[in-house]
Design a protein around this nucleic acid. Structure first.
Length: 225
DNA sequence: TACCAGGAGAAAA
DNA sequence: TTTTCTCATGGT
């Protein structure tokens, strides 16, 4: 796979949707909470849970860590899997407190931060990378179901690759730029959410012959299901 | 009514 | 080591 494929898809998505300014959160800690709550869940349900959680008190790790499980679970109910997510969010909050708070985490080197996050109960590769990229602004590319689906339909990946393998392929093909990774992933998510199909690939794109053969642009997220 | 959605951990094979 | 199961709400 050529690096130009990745750049081309990015430019086309960017030209079509414009800047996304992601992730929707008021603080790095809110990004962390959202990353856990959005596991296998649509964002609209996560927003409801976040509002209920904010209604309980300050959205800070030290505070959320003190909430009784039953209270936390009730707040998280709209996001689904509320018992599972209660345990995961509690584990994450306690870990943040143990590390010395968000300021201490900001001082950690990227690979150490990522490895530490992965050691927290309920934080897998995608959740860790959401946090590392969107809460801490580090250049780590997030591989989610949307990314696999879109790039598999473009024929650029199989889609069933190991998470770390796929992440390495994106990071090797793109400049190490957290703002680019932020925008790119946000654009992929936006593309997945929209029903618009008018997405011609840019002039000179190496994918154009493939597009002419049937793709006629970046495939809709709902294509092929 | 049935199916699906931005995952992760535990249990089973 | 790999595969399967479980967790749960809300939208279509």
């Amino acid at each position: 796979m050529k690096a130009s494929h990745f750049a081309c898809v990015y430019h086309d998505l960017s030209a079509h949707y414009g800047p996304r300014h992601w992730w929707p959160a008021d603080s790095p800690f809110e990004v962390m909470v959202g990353a856990v709550l959005t596991q296998n869940t649509s964002w609209t349900n996560v927003e409801r849970a976040l509002q209920r959680l904010k209604g309980l008190g300050p959205l800070e790790a030290a505070y959320v860590a003190t909430l009784p499980a039953a209270v936390l679970a009730d707040a998280l109910r709209p996001a689904g899997y509320f018992n599972v997510k209660t345990a995961r969010l509690q584990a994450l909050c306690r870990w943040v407190v143990e590390q010395g708070g968000m300021e201490a985490l900001h001082g950690m080197e990227t690979s150490s931060l990522r490895a530490a996050l992965l050691s927290v109960h309920g934080v897998g590769p995608e959740t860790a990378d959401d946090i590392v990229l969107y809460a801490f602004g580090r250049s780590v590319f997030v591989i989610d179901a949307y990314t696999r689906r879109l790039f598999a339909r473009l024929g650029l990946v199989r889609g069933d690759e190991d998470y770390e393998d796929l992440r390495a392929r994106f990071e090797q093909a793109l400049p190490q730029d957290p703002l680019l990774y932020n925008e790119y992933h946000a654009l992929i998510v936006e593309h997945a959410k929209t029903t618009c199909r008018a997405r011609p690939l840019c002039a000179g794109c190496v994918l154009r012959p493939q597009c002419a053969a049937g793709l006629s642009g970046i495939p809709s997220d709902s294509d092929g299901r």
